Simulated assay, not measured.
Amino acid sequence: MGYEAKTERYDKMTYHKAGRTGLRLPAVSLGLWHQFGAAYSPENARSMWKGPYGNGGSKKHLTASLNQSLKRLGLDYVDLFYSHRPDPETPLEETMETLAGFVRQGKALYVGLSNYSPEETERAADLLQQLGVRLAIHQTEYSMFHRDPEKGLLDVLDKKGAGCIAFAPLAQGLLTTKYVSAIPETSRAKDANSPFLQAEHITERTVSKAQRLNLVAKERGQSLPQMALSWLLKDARMTSVLIGASGAQQIEENVQALQSADFSNEELSAIEFILSEKNEGE
């Protein structure tokens, strides 16, 4: 007997609009980077066939990539198509013209960017607007331990009416209790060849910050990962956070972050004080 989703599956989730578009996304989304991470690498995701046309943001590559994806998925269109990284060898005008073309052709309803700088994002949004297409969303790494989006990107997205979706919102596990004491033997950080979190990232100072943040979370009646997700979603510019999970229990725990999204000024000050402490060598 095939899988059949529950009819009430949409009833309890919180949804946010992607910027000033009509697209609504769940506030907590399930990402597959840690399960199928190799597919995201430049060597794999962008090299879909041999030869000079398997990489980058060219019209040739993007069009073939989308067509192949639609064929594999058995769909006529996708809701959202991303340009996952800027291509320095392709004019940005060509990449944006291609994305806009997908919308006009009905192959994608919305388009997004990922890993573009604030300056690149603003220019891309302007190019899309000139072509009659709105930038819907930008996917970027963002967490308590990685706050680069606060250095201009979030402001650009707000200005252009685009949403933000954060990947690695738990800093690949550093913002869970998983690494508070020691690196678990089953952790990917034990694998020197892993493209994910490495043991050298789990410093004494980072662990200390996580321990202290965990105390703040307990005072709020949350787990550390729940608080880390709530902390991101408190910003109205955030559309969604992409979580990874090894089981249903982790998903259920993370989704509960939506039940305690408000922070007092005292809590925010305490969190900021912990996060503002410099790591050694900084």
Rank of each mutant, 00 (worst) to 15 (best):
A5S: 15
A5V: 09
K6H: 08
K6P: 03
T7N: 10
T7E: 14
R9K: 09
R9C: 07
Y10G: 05
D11N: 10
K12F: 00
M13G: 01
M13W: 00
M13Y: 01
Y15H: 08
H16P: 06
K17L: 03
A18W: 00
A18R: 00
R20K: 14
R20Q: 14
R20V: 03
R20P: 01
T21S: 15
G22M: 09
G22N: 13
P26Y: 02
P26A: 02
P26R: 00
A27I: 05
V28S: 02
V28C: 03
V28Q: 09
V28F: 01
L30M: 12
G31S: 11
L32N: 10
L32C: 10
W33G: 07
W33C: 07
W33A: 12
W33L: 13
H34N: 14
H34A: 15
H34R: 13
F36I: 14
F36D: 12
A38T: 15
A38I: 12
A39S: 15
Y40L: 13
Y40E: 11
S41E: 12
S41I: 09
P42S: 12
P42G: 07
P42R: 05
R46L: 07
R46A: 10
M48P: 09
M48L: 15
W49R: 13
W49S: 13
W49P: 02
W49I: 05
G51P: 02
G51Y: 02
P52K: 12
G54T: 13
N55L: 12
G56T: 02
G57P: 01
G57L: 09
G57S: 11
K60A: 08
K60E: 07
K60P: 02
L62H: 03
L62D: 02
L62F: 08
A64E: 14
A64D: 11
S65F: 04
N67Y: 00
Q68S: 14
L73M: 13
G74Y: 08
G74D: 13
G74C: 14
L75M: 14
L75W: 06
Y77R: 13
Y77Q: 05
V78D: 03
D79I: 14
L80M: 04
L80R: 01
L80P: 02
Y82H: 11
S83D: 03
S83V: 08
S83E: 04
H84I: 07
R85L: 10
R85E: 10
P86W: 05
D87Y: 02
P88M: 08
E89F: 08
E89K: 10
E89Y: 03
T90V: 11
T90P: 06
L92P: 00
E93K: 11
T95D: 01
M96L: 04
E97A: 07
E97I: 01
E97R: 05
E97P: 00
L99Q: 09
L99W: 05
L99N: 04
L99C: 01
A100P: 01
A100L: 05
V103I: 11
V103F: 01
R104P: 08
R104A: 14
R104C: 06
Q105I: 04
G106A: 06
G106V: 03
K107T: 06
A108W: 01
